[in-house]
Computed example of a mutant assay.
Amino acid sequence: MEQTPAMMVALSAFVNWCEAKGVRSFPAQPATVAQFTLENAGLGIDVLSEVVDHIADMHEAAGLANPVATWIVAEAMDRIDSRAEAPRSWPKEHKWRFHQLPCILRRYLFAHDRQREKTVRQAQGEAAKARQELAAIQKPVEGSNGTTHAAA
């Protein structure tokens, strides 16, 4: 797997942290990844998610166990981002289940639902515009001889 510049930047934060702590970054231990996320919560969940994704990709590309796919990393990420709300499309009686999902899955579902809502609103707007245009075309037009006929 080729490492992109974005991956290198994201991984450098983890590698530098590991060097400062005197722990190895590769192969990484799940507890190391979890501690890194907790101590670097100030970077924000978006940046940390990217770093964690790159750590996972790096290990999987090398054929090593993914230290990210563990309960301890999921718990650390949950501590950082527990505020995400259940998607509005979920039935009220099931919204509590959203908070039982791992952080990474909650973030995916929330973003997916937000994109879905945006697409639906856009389609509704386009449909409303099309209905207005159709109504304007179908609106009766008074001719010069006083007769009324539908516009073509």
Rank of each mutant, 00 (worst) to 15 (best):
Q3W: 11
P5L: 02
A6D: 14
M7W: 15
M7E: 11
M7R: 06
M8R: 11
V9L: 14
V9D: 11
A10P: 00
A10K: 01
L11N: 01
L11P: 00
L11Q: 00
A13Q: 00
N16G: 10
W17I: 12
C18N: 01
E19D: 09
K21R: 06
K21E: 12
K21T: 06
V23R: 00
R24P: 12
F26T: 01
P27A: 09
P27K: 03
A28V: 00
P30H: 00
P30F: 01
A31Y: 06
T32C: 07
V33N: 04
A34Q: 01
A34E: 04
Q35T: 02
Q35V: 05
T37S: 04
E39C: 00
E39L: 02
N40F: 04
A41K: 00
D46K: 07
V47A: 13
V47F: 14
S49L: 13
S49N: 13
V52Y: 10
D53L: 08
D53I: 02
H54A: 10
I55A: 00
I55D: 00
A56Y: 08
A56S: 15
D57R: 04
M58C: 04
M58H: 01
M58T: 00
E60C: 10
A61S: 15
G63F: 04
L64D: 04
L64W: 09
N66I: 00
P67V: 01
V68G: 05
V68N: 14
A69E: 03
A69H: 07
T70Q: 04
T70G: 02
W71P: 15
I72M: 12
I72W: 08
I72Q: 07
I72H: 03
V73L: 06
E75R: 09
M77Y: 07
D78G: 15
I80T: 04
I80M: 05
S82A: 10
S82F: 15
R83E: 12
A84R: 12
A86M: 08
A86G: 05
P87N: 05
R88T: 14
R88M: 14
R88Q: 14
P91W: 06
P91L: 05
K92Y: 15
K92E: 12
H94G: 15
H94W: 15
W96R: 02
W96I: 06
W96E: 07
F98L: 05
F98Q: 01
H99I: 15
Q100E: 14
P102S: 10
P102C: 13
P102I: 09
C103G: 03
I104A: 12
L105Y: 14
R106Y: 10
Y108M: 09
Y108N: 09
F110M: 14
H112V: 03
D113S: 10
D113E: 12
D113R: 03
R114K: 14
R114N: 08
Q115L: 10
Q115K: 04
R121L: 08
Q122D: 04
Q122N: 02
Q124E: 02
E126K: 00
A128C: 06
A128Q: 03
K129I: 07
A130H: 05
A130Q: 08
R131Y: 07
R131F: 07
R131M: 07
Q132H: 02
A135T: 02
A136S: 05
A136C: 03
I137M: 11
I137A: 09
Q138S: 06
P140W: 12
V141L: 09
E142T: 08
N145T: 06
G146Q: 08
G146S: 08
G146D: 13
T148M: 15
H149N: 09
A150Q: 12
A151D: 13
A152K: 08
